[in-house]
Nucleic acid binder design. Structure first.
Lengths: 194, 194
DNA sequence: AAATTATATTAACTTAGTTTAACATTTACT
DNA sequence: AGTAAATGTTAAACTAAGTTAATATAATTT
């Protein structure tokens, strides 16, 4: 089935019958994007809640001064969307851009509501997905409040070693909430320290 | 019914039958706490997901240096728990303390699982509650990345005017991620500015 | 009302992180 | 291979925010 990667991921949370799997498969779209394209741009309506099959995205906010702040990266097995925009079908606050050629399983708003109706287990599944996302976001708040930039960088390296290899350093800096120059300084300090 | 405030809140999201309301009422506990008591302490298992009927709580994280960082306040109509601890029934990262005498509607882990089974609409309801919490948390991440301390303070004043009146200023400072001294400085600058 | 205790202010000094700008290195393009 | 574009480094000057410590004010307790 085209949604096998998703089914494999879902099996950790809920067990679906063959009919339910087939129904899900019939409703869901596989989409491919090139590096540089956008899934959502600030002001758009976010049409899809997406499961990343392969590739990488960044979610960012551009402030009044035109500065970009990276909220999260998504790689294989992660979900991505502008949740507020998707749920309310209202203009997005965030940009979601592909940092690599990316393959997604995309679920539109209409489809997800239909799925909740026809396969109630999916309501449970998505509740659990959002719970995990919320917990991760709260932990990020805590790290930004309690850790220095250096420690946040070390944590990032440790927790997401795959991501650091795949994206330019200035984006890591933006994610950490510091300038690229300061991240450079931190890295050279870390090298001297050893 | 003892859970009327909660039912009123829920009616914005789902509509329950009288039987469902009665079932919910039978399963749910009303609890009262005094100012200063704890709902959860770091290391405890968070037993309840709670709806605040009246009063106020703070959720905080104490780091290795013993410094407290306030993650959120909850007042009337808000939910509070250590979500990670509650879901996995694992030791809590956070403290949740009452800043006023507080009345809660408390739902234990067993009960919530039972409710999901017997009243599937509640799975939908709680999905929506968590979605909102996630969106709020992501916005907090964005503000901490993109705004100066002064602007974060002005935003806080505007968005939560009720809360600022009810809690000491050093807790506002902790929530904003700055020292109490620096918040004092910001406030006196704001007074001079006008 | 006096005395504690908790909260808030002020100021001098220090530090973490930013800004600017010049230069170096890597990656992508013809 | 050679050039342009994108990314990364370094350093000096600057600023936002933290630290310390002394003092002031407000809220509780006796």
């Amino acid at each position: 089935m085209k949604i096998d990667p998703l089914l494999n991921y879902m099996s950790k949370y809920v067990s679906l019958t063959e009919e339910e799997k087939a129904y899900l498969d019939s409703k869901i779209v596989l989409r491919k994007y090139l590096k540089g394209q956008y899934l959502v741009q600030q002001g758009d309506i976010c049409k899809y809640e997406c499961y990343v099959v392969s590739g990488c995205t960044k979610t960012s906010y551009v402030d009044d001064l035109g500065q970009e702040h990276i909220i999260m990266f998504s790689i294989e097995d992660w979900w991505t969307s502008d949740m507020a925009s998707f749920i309310n079908q209202s203009p997005a606050d965030f940009n979601i851009q592909f940092l690599e050629n990316t393959e997604l399983i995309a679920i539109s708003h209409d489809v997800i509501e239909d799925l909740y109706k026809h396969v109630p287990k999916l309501e449970r599944f998505f509740r659990q997905v959002v719970e995990k996302a919320f917990i991760a976001s709260q932990k990020r708040v805590v790290r930004n409040l309690s850790m220095t930039a250096k420690d946040r960088y070390l944590f990032f390296k440790e927790q997401y070693p795959e991501i650091e290899q795949r994206i330019p350093q200035y984006m890591v800096a933006s994610y950490l909430g510091i300038t690229k120059e300061f991240l450079s300084k931190i890295k050279s300090q870390l090298i001297m320290d050893q």
